[in-house]
């Protein structure tokens, strides 16, 4: 047995991946299959699963309804479609905004003196040491009607003698967007920084030497060479933003329900695991489709490095 292991590369490989394999099969593949089975089931009156096979949960999410106000046999109920669309647009907007904020910062850190670079990176990571939920609560403190921002604005207005009506910032889509951008910013900064840092200074010099001014150098050399970082960061940001429910729950309230909130409520409040499972799989499918098309266009970000 040991002898075979010593001589056989492929049994060595099997041994090396087996802990992960057990973990993945036990905690990902099997639960996923269970989720799929449950999603075809029906909710019993006391909130248990009746195992049947039907697509009713999927039909419901897509908004095809037979309970129509006008009395037709079939009509479109946009309730869940709206939630899906809202999740998708929010994830898209958050990702774009995160890129816009992270890129200049990553660029600045990458071009900074090596001695200062670590300090800056450290500062980027510091917020991650605080619990995710606590950081969202902090935003509630800032955005509330009697929160820090409104108090500050009120005080400033008072100084110049203006009447001030507190801004309604919390429980708006904007608050959710701000929260998402804040939470996921470091996950974009780090990969972009890494790919920018890898670009040898002589490439900038070569571009300048060949007649490219700094702007053209950026678009022809810097940006294409840092795309692997942007792609990696996008995957790291887009997927969790699609699925998370804490930020929208705390900062969006009932105004901003995302698919993550929908799933959470099906399992905890509505006690309909069958519908929750179907929603989970729809979320997964949406994320996979978007990621698939995105990576087909831009790659996984390693082509340039690995080619």
């Amino acid at each position: 047995m040991l002898k075979r292991l010593r001589e056989n590369k492929s049994s060595q490989g099997t041994l090396l991946i087996s802990p992960t394999l057990v973990f993945m099969v036990g905690l990902l593949i099997i639960p996923l299959i269970l989720t799929l089975i449950i999603s075809f089931g029906k909710r019993s009156a006391d909130g248990n699963v009746i195992y049947t096979f039907g697509l009713h949960n999927y039909i419901r999410i897509l908004g095809i309804s037979s309970d129509c106000p006008g009395g037709q046999a079939i009509c479109f109920d946009p309730l869940y479609a709206n939630i899906l669309w809202r999740s998708l647009t929010l994830a898209f907007n958050s990702t774009v905004l995160v890129i816009a904020l992270a890129y200049p910062l990553a660029y600045f850190i990458a071009r900074a003196h090596p001695m200062k670079r670590n300090t800056f990176l450290f500062m980027v990571l510091v917020p991650l040491w605080t619990n995710f939920v606590i950081r969202v609560y902090a935003w509630m403190m800032l955005l509330r009607t009697q929160g820090v921002i409104n108090s500050l604005l009120g005080w400033l207005a008072g100084l110049v003698g203006l009447h001030f009506t507190p801004l309604e910032m919390l429980y708006t889509p904007g608050a959710v967007l701000v929260g998402m951008v804040y939470e996921f910013l470091p996950f974009m900064i780090l990969p972009i920084f890494t790919s920018l840092e890898k670009i040898d200074n002589s490439l900038y010099e070569a571009a300048a030497d060949l007649g490219a001014n700094p702007i053209r150098t950026f678009f022809r050399v810097t940006l294409p060479l840092s795309m692997p970082g942007v792609v990696a960061g996008t995957i790291l940001v887009f997927i969790p933003v699609m699925g998370t429910f804490i930020v929208s729950d705390l900062l969006g309230g009932k105004q901003v329900i995302l698919i993550g909130n929908l799933i959470q409520r099906q399992f905890l409040d509505a006690r309909d695991p069958t519908f929750g499972s179907a929603a989970s799989l729809i979320l997964m499918a949406m994320t996979l489709i978007v990621t698939f098309f995105y990576t087909r266009k831009f790659g996984f970000g390693e082509e340039i490095v690995a080619a």
């Binding site: 002589s202 490439l203 010099e205 571009a207």
Partner: peptide, 11 residues
């Protein structure tokens, strides 16, 4: 300039 490490654009 011809650079020591060539500085070719890899992309």
């Amino acid at each position: 300039t011809v650079f020591q490490n060539y500085a070719l654009f890899q992309h």
